[in-house]
Design a protein around this nucleic acid. Structure first.
Length: 518
RNA sequence: GGGUCGUUAACUCAGUUGGUAGAGUAUCUGACUUUUAAUCAGAGAGUCGCGCGUUCAAGUCGCGCACGACCCA
């Protein structure tokens, strides 16, 4: 049999000891009247070592984060959702019975406290406890107070522990929530309505990516988790909703990295009678405003790189960028044959055999330019070959009315004036299907209903997608997407790691499995 | 997919040339009624990620696997 971990055993024994005293260690009756944050300003007028002039009794609840015990007294720090405050517990005040129970309290326990405010000798506002309530006895020890939890794997796998002990982590997720709330406010104020479109789609469209597949039993059909909401949001433009947006998850069955999680949050918004120029205006307004709101500045630091988000932002066509930043002579950039030849002879450029000049320019751009775009830069005039859903430019039919936004060398947003011609759209989707080649994992299929919708007539419009996780990485100075996703995807942990106290005497694989019901 | 690094007590980390595993915090016992990384005295706590190999002997060397981090594709 497995030897139970000493620390867990001791905690259980304390829990049993409390239960033996008639104390409910998972009680549900305590209602804190105050949040800790409310108490903090109330101590401003207090002098050190005084508490005579505080007549009020406050009640708070939270988790014990630290403890300094003396014989018949103790100091603890109690943390709730709003902040932290010191609690002073002494036997003279709480009485012998409560103090005896208190001796079985541990760091990590969730407790309720009633008492009066006072200031200690060292001028720290504290609560002189007179009533102590055990709310939840914690049966596992928290990480060390000084170094905290630094193991990133544990921080991601056991985010609940990370959130308890890592204030920086709590701050990032609060900021994330705030950013998303502000985006809704921003778009709402501009007449956009938030909609919800299918996450499960019969034909996964709106992007080139490998989808997750699932199956609907009653309908007897395969469905795909969406890789983008785009084609449904455009159907709503057809339907007459002129400004729509959606903030929700997309799913892509591809690799994981510091910038990729298989499910990620995307903002897409569409505006009728607008062009991609309007999208650029609204984007620089939105992102700079978000930074001002959550960081109180537009000049931020991202992993040691200074980034200035103050509008207006630089706007370059792809060809201009290839020349000005990529260093390719303009006459080569302009010439289809020369740019193809250059791309084919440049080391590090990956180009399919049948790729045309547009793909060559895009590949060279990705290699030579992208990483150099630190301050926000809109790159416009994307080749039509790489933009199956964007509107063709009226002066130059080889490019589209599209931009991508780059900040710190990374793509943050992608937008275009939408293609509203159903005949052109059908041809481009057909070409896209033909080009997917032998990649079985990309599910490309003609979305007849989408083309039919366009045939009813979609107003001229522009739309944009912004990767919310990457935007939040930028605004919270986070190096990995896993730092801004509460529960990032991880490979399953091994039995040894997940249950060191259990699962020792595992049966060999061939043994009968009693958990599997027949 | 490739490369580099990591995995040792609950947490943070040491561990020399291969010779039966150490510290701090946390925990337990005792002292202590204003501490804040409390202090003082004592104690317990480890499948050294998993497996195979080399060896008289492996945390340490070799190979494989798992998980993670970073870089590259």
């Amino acid at each position: 049999m497995s030897q139970e971990n000493q620390l867990l055993k001791q905690r259980r024994e304390k829990a049993e000891a409390l239960a033996a005293l008639g104390i409910n260690i998972f009680s549900n009756g305590f209602k804190p009247a105050n949040r800790i944050k409310e108490l903090l300003p109330k101590g401003e007028h207090l002098a050190a070592e005084t508490f005579e002039d505080t007549r009020f009794t406050y009640s708070i609840a939270g988790r014990i984060m630290s403890m300094r015990k003396f014989g018949k007294a103790a100091f603890c720090h109690l943390a709730d959702d709003s902040g932290q405050i010191q609690i002073y517990i002494k036997q003279d005040t709480v009485g012998e019975e409560q103090f005896a129970a208190f001796k079985k309290w541990d760091i990590g326990d969730i407790v309720g406290i009633e008492g009066k405010l006072f200031k200690t000798q060292t001028d720290e506002l504290s609560v002189m406890a007179d009533k102590l309530v055990m709310i939840t006895k914690s049966l596992r020890p928290l990480p060390e107070k000084w170094h905290g939890l630094t193991n990133v794997e544990t921080r991601y796998r056991q985010r609940y522990v990370d959130l308890i002990v890592t204030p920086e982590s709590r701050a990032i997720f609060r900021k994330r929530v705030e950013i998303i709330r502000l985006i809704r406010e921003f778009l709402g104020n501009r007449g956009f309505m938030e909609v919800e479109t299918p996450m499960m789609q019969p034909i996964p469209g709106g992007a080139q990516a490998k989808p997750f597949m699932t199956h609907h039993n009653a309908l007897g059909m395969d469905l795909y988790l969406r890789i983008a909401p785009e084609l449904y949001l455009k159907r709503l433009l057809v339907g007459g909703f002129e400004r729509v947006f959606e903030i929700n998850r997309n799913f892509r069955n591809e690799g994981l990295s510091t910038r990729h999680n298989p499910e990620f949050t995307m903002l897409e918004f569409y505006q009728a009678y607008a062009t991609y120029h309007d999208m650029m205006d609204i984007t620089e307004e939105l992102v700079s405003w978000l930074s001002q709101e959550v960081n109180e500045t537009m000049e931020i630091d991202y992993q040691g790189t200074k980034v200035n988000l103050t509008p207006p932002w630089r706007r370059l066509t792809m060809n201009e960028a290839l020349t000005e930043i990529g260093g390719i002579a303009p006459e080569i950039v302009k010439d289809d044959d020369e740019i193809l030849a250059l791309a084919r002879s440049t080391k590090g450029v990956k180009l399919e055999p049948l790729a045309g000049p547009g793909k060559a320019r895009t590949a060279l751009f990705e290699l030579l330019v992208e990483e150099k775009l630190i301050d926000p830069t809109f790159i416009t005039s994307y080749p039509i070959e790489v933009s199956p859903l964007a509107r063709r430019n009226e002066q130059d039919p080889t490019v589209t009315d599209r931009f991508e936004l780059f900040i710190t060398g990374r793509e943050i947003a992608n937008a275009f004036s939408e293609l509203s011609d159903p005949i052109d759209q059908r041809q481009r989707l057909e070409q896209q299907i033909a080009e997917k080649g032998d990649d079985e994992e990309i599910h490309a299929e003609m979305d007849e209903d989408f083309v039919r919708a366009l045939e009813y007539g979609m107003p001229a419009a522009a739309g944009q997608g912004i990767g919310i996780d990457r935007l939040i990485m930028l605004l919270t100075n986070s190096p990995s997407i896993r730092d801004v996703i509460l529960f990032p995807h991880m490979k399953p942990e091994t039995e040894e790691k997940s249950g060191k106290t259990a699962g020792k005497g595992q049966k060999e694989q061939g043994g009968s499995c009693k958990k599997c019901k027949g």
